[in-house]
Design a protein around this nucleic acid. Structure first.
Lengths: 248, 248
DNA sequence: CGACTCGTTGAGTGATATCAAACCCGGTGG
DNA sequence: CCACCGGGTTTGATATCACTCAACGAGTCG
């Protein structure tokens, strides 16, 4: 991947949220950044750290945010993909309140933090796009609270499968009725607040109900409607009306 | 309360996050707004609605965000108090993804939405303060995911008690070792993903362990250190280094 | 081939839910 | 002043969903 294309991706992502004028585009493309890649369980950010002088934008691969419990439990609080900013959530904060790890091989653009802050604060269009991005993230966090707090095991994992399907489609990395979910069942468990053993049984039961089929980590949707019903899934919280599918 | 004092509160709140210059202050104080009050279970905002032409800022009382499940469950995803913006979370979004209700008698300032957006996008200092506010909210959402997803009943309610204590102290509506929590046990249950019956037993067990005492809804901390330990509570996620206690 | 990670399955357990009744207390009306 | 009412709290008995522990299988890497 050429260096330029990383910022191009950022422009393309932000344009799915607001109209950018030529000056906005130029300002984004002028951001100082460094391309970087990580292998699978590498930490991009650790809880408690002061933010780096850069802010990472994903150009390919998946990453997840997690927090640990004193009792040794792990909770994954979100998963991110191309077009997402990893530490937008810390851009104006002094300490990282969670860790971020690479879920797959991951490519990022490390964008200069100061420059990005200025861009956001000085350019209304860019600022608006970034606000939308941050607010949608927050909305997803809220939905996860509901998922983990008030839904049955079946509903939780069904919901997760639905969400990822839509988000990956909009990110241009999956198509309508199938996708490769590179999470282990342990990851899924830590994302929905269950045990990996129980996730295993739950997936099996979803297959038996005929709503999905599986081949390794490839998930296919045999009955999308029923799956959304089981998962109590409504896409409202993803605010897709303020996003457009992004194809590669 | 005089009209002016509502925006004064907003200025005071934002100044706990960043330095505002005279022009920033004047711009805030010039915002068009209307004072309004609600009684206890009134809706301030309903899921699915398009945002109003105004954005509500709490000048007194408590409110909570909630989402409902198809199965009839309710999950409270956050609780807010003086100095919090209710629909900052929707300021740049087209649909409300959750509802907000008054928990107590509630006073708000309804600030013109367009004007507030402009203020945020055009005034870097104000923009920064609002970013911090929104990001701290998101951080709290993440912690709640952990709370509800990976902690025991005891830990969950202990954690909730700790969080509210600190936040209410910083908001200037509680003091160090006691506060009035105007939530029913049902509210608490819906906030931590348990049943009200189980919350009742859990509170009882916390009292028996000698870490808190209760008188109606007045909670007092007999052993704050032990409570934070039980609740696996660390204040990092509240980012209090970027806030200052706000006294009335 | 051995070692490791991930997935799968079974049996037993436990934390929390469910259901149901009693209780408490402030408010209201007779 | 008392009877009643209703929301919230408390308690007990029982049920269940998901956890724990443990073993085995399948694939992959060195």
């Amino acid at each position: 991947m050429s260096d330029a294309s990383a910022l191009e991706k950022m422009v393309r992502k932000l344009r799915t949220r607001v109209d950018l004028d030529a000056a906005d585009r130029d300002a984004i493309l002028a951001l100082p950044f460094v391309a970087r890649s990580y292998d699978a369980p590498a930490y991009i950010l650790r809880e408690g750290e002061r933010p780096k002088h850069y802010c990472s934008f994903i150009t390919s691969g998946l990453a997840y945010r997690q927090k640990l419990t004193a009792a040794g439990g792990r909770q994954i609080v979100s998963v991110h993909m191309v077009g997402d900013f990893i530490d937008l959530q810390h851009l104006f904060l002094n300490r990282a309140d969670h860790s971020v790890q690479a879920l797959t091989e991951l490519q990022t653009a490390e964008i200069d933090r100061e420059a990005l802050q200025e861009l956001i604060l000085d350019r209304p269009n860019v600022g608006r796009a970034m606000w939308i991005d941050a607010l949608v993230d927050a909305s997803i966090f809220r939905e996860w609270i509901v998922n983990v707090g008030r839904r049955s095991a079946r509903a939780r994992v069904a919901h997760l499968l639905c969400e990822f399907s839509l988000r990956m489609r909009y990110a241009g990395v999956a198509n309508k009725d199938t996708y490769e979910l590179p999470m282990t069942q342990e990851h899924i468990a830590d994302a929905v607040g269950l045990t990996s053993v129980h996730v295993n049984r739950t997936l099996k039961s979803l297959v038996e109900s005929g709503v999905i089929t599986r081949d390794k980590r490839q998930i296919s949707f045999a009955d999308w409607g029923k799956l959304t019903e089981i998962g109590d899934f409504s896409a409202l919280y993803l605010h897709l009306d303020q996003a457009e599918p992004l194809d590669r």
